[in-house]
Amino acid sequence: MTRIGGRRDDTRATPSRHIATELLREYAEGGPAAGTTTGVEGHVDGCPECRGELARLMPTARFGRVWTAVEEALDEPRRGPAERALIWLGVAPDTARLVAVTPALRWSWSIAAGLVLFVAALVARLSLLDSPSLPLLAISPMLPVLGVAVSFGPRFDPTYEITLVAPVHGFRLALLRTAAVLTVAAALAAAASLVLPGSGPAALAWLLPMLALTLVTLAMATRVDPVIAAAVTGAGWVTLLLTTTHFGSGRSLLLTTMGQAAVSVVAVVALVALALARRRFDEKFTAI
């Protein structure tokens, strides 16, 4: 409702009562009174006194508004490509920010991971292996494992301590960051797979091990330092490769349906262990 205040100091004005200066200022600044546009404008239209007062208030108000907008624009956090992509995909800006600070989402990390995969794909293409998918199978799953290792914990996250004691849910944060790391690694590996000579579905044989190894690392990180978790997972993966692969031909049990099924079981077991230990993400020094 428009507040019509007392008399200003005018005895000549057409209407006997004027709009309070406070209300006019609100209107000029686009504050609550802006919602009563019709009432204010209707009065101002027929009242030279209030019109003059509004004109006097307007430049300052506009300046204030423009200045506030400039300040906000200058303060606004700068967003990198990963963060902008997440927001474009519909992720809430605050969640996107929590994910974007993940060390493994930095350009340096992605470029390094991309180069490693490119070399692996090149080796596969130039080699005489029966199964050219082997180099990618061996290397790709380790990328998100390393990414997880450098994304959590006191060693790599400079804000680890304040993140740990913040009310934001540690498990949710861990999953968000892991998902981001996993997505980047999977996209890079998929791109590398494209250059493999026609090996069919086997070219994507790295996908399930990638998922399984990441889940195993994350589940272990609820108990030990993420770097140790990644090292143990990596050692386990190398051992598995050595015992199930004939390196002369490049054939591996892990490239068979049976091998992929076994890896899936490991992924499910790790997922269950992770779900059971999720509370530890909020309480232990060793977790995120």
Partner: peptide, 20 residues
Amino acid sequence: PGFFPNFTAYEFIDYVAILK
């Protein structure tokens, strides 16, 4: 206390506010 060194003071506090 640790910081993201490339963040501005404003960006860092804004980030902490998200954590809170």
